[in-house]
Amino acid sequence: MSASTAPTATRSSRQRPAGSVVEVSVSGAPRRGLASRLVSRLGSGTVQVVLVLVALFWMVPVIGLLVVSLRSETDNTASGWWTVFLKPAELTLANYQDLVQNEVIMRSFLNTVYISVPSTILVVGIGALAAYALVWMEFPGRDWLMVAVVGLLVLPIQAALIPISQLYGALGVFGSITGVILFHVAFGLPFAVFLLRNFFAGIPRDLLEAARMDGAGEWRIFRRVVLPVARPALASLAVFQFLWVWNDLLVALVFTSPEAAPLTVALRAQLRQFGTNIDVLASGAFLSMMVPLLVFFAFQRYFVQGVFAGSTK
């Protein structure tokens, strides 16, 4: 059987027409590159332990700030914050009770809220309207307007401080909360329009055309179709804008008066007497840090969706 089979196979191979394609199957997995091997090893237990240790190392200043804010001024002066692990009885909420009764800190905290919330709402609202117009509405100069928006992204804030100060002085809003809000809105809109315009451009045109066939106008399409779809992008923009405004110091130093100063300016003023009011600085700084964290975790789900929007199909 084997002797008669071999010649047959040989003859059939010799009778194969010239120019025919012979398919050859190669078994075995393809070779993996260095980057692929590194990514696959990131899920190992050793790497995860190392990442946890690195995260804990980066959290040491935050933990130290929290501990200092929970110790009295005498204890903070006598020893380092790490000694609290041996003396947990030193922890107290007296600093936060005194902080609530501190008129300057509480007024600056409310000023920060009065500045951050309107600045965020106005930037998100105006930016969404402008991005919708740049994507789905036809009008002369639309492309040049988008070029101007991109150009404004590279304009540094420092270049506008002196001219806007002169403008605010002429308008009578220098040193007020209104002036700070207008500044943050003006410099937050270019990024907002750029971010939302790219997101709106990915919305299927058929979705909007179907709404127009049903008799919906531009305003109704914007409210009922575009805004629900763009919720992750809007949440991401709101988080970015709120963090920028809440942690701002430069603009507040230039454009606010002592009565309208936000929390960052008030804490900076306390640094002049650092040795005698470290308890106020620590508790105030931790309070200033906790509010953005709460905002981030409240919008975390939408924020992650907005950051990864468009990265996968």
Rank of each mutant, 00 (worst) to 15 (best):
V50M: 11
L70C: 08
V54S: 01
S44D: 15
W58C: 12
V50Y: 08
V52G: 07
R41F: 06
Q48E: 09
V54A: 13
R71V: 02
G45D: 07
P61T: 02
L53D: 01
G45I: 05
V68K: 05
F57C: 09
E73Y: 02
Q48C: 03
V67G: 00
V62F: 13
T74V: 13
V39E: 10
W58F: 15
V50H: 01
W58Q: 04
L51T: 02
T46E: 14
M59R: 10
L70T: 08
S69D: 09
S72T: 15
G45L: 08
R71N: 03
T46A: 15
E73N: 09
L51I: 11
G64T: 01
L51G: 06
V60P: 07
L65I: 10
F57H: 06
R71M: 09
L66V: 12
L56I: 12
M59C: 15
V68A: 11
A55W: 03
L56K: 00
L51Q: 10
M59I: 06
S72L: 03
T74I: 11
R71W: 06
G43W: 13
I63C: 08
E73G: 05
I63E: 02
E73I: 10
V68F: 05
L66D: 00
S40D: 14
G43R: 14
V54R: 02
L42W: 04
V50L: 14
L42I: 10
E73R: 10
V47N: 05
L51K: 04
V47C: 05
V49T: 12
L66K: 06
L56G: 07
W58I: 07
A55Y: 01
E73W: 03
V39A: 14
T46S: 13
R41Y: 08
E73C: 04
I63G: 03
L66F: 13
V47Q: 00
G45S: 14
V54Y: 12
I63N: 05
G43K: 13
R41D: 14
S72E: 04
S69M: 02
V50R: 01
R41A: 15
E73A: 12
L66I: 12
V49M: 09
V60M: 11
G43T: 11
V52K: 06
E73L: 12
S40V: 07
V39M: 09
V49G: 06
R41H: 10
A55K: 09
G45F: 06
V39H: 11
P61K: 05
L65V: 07
L56M: 15
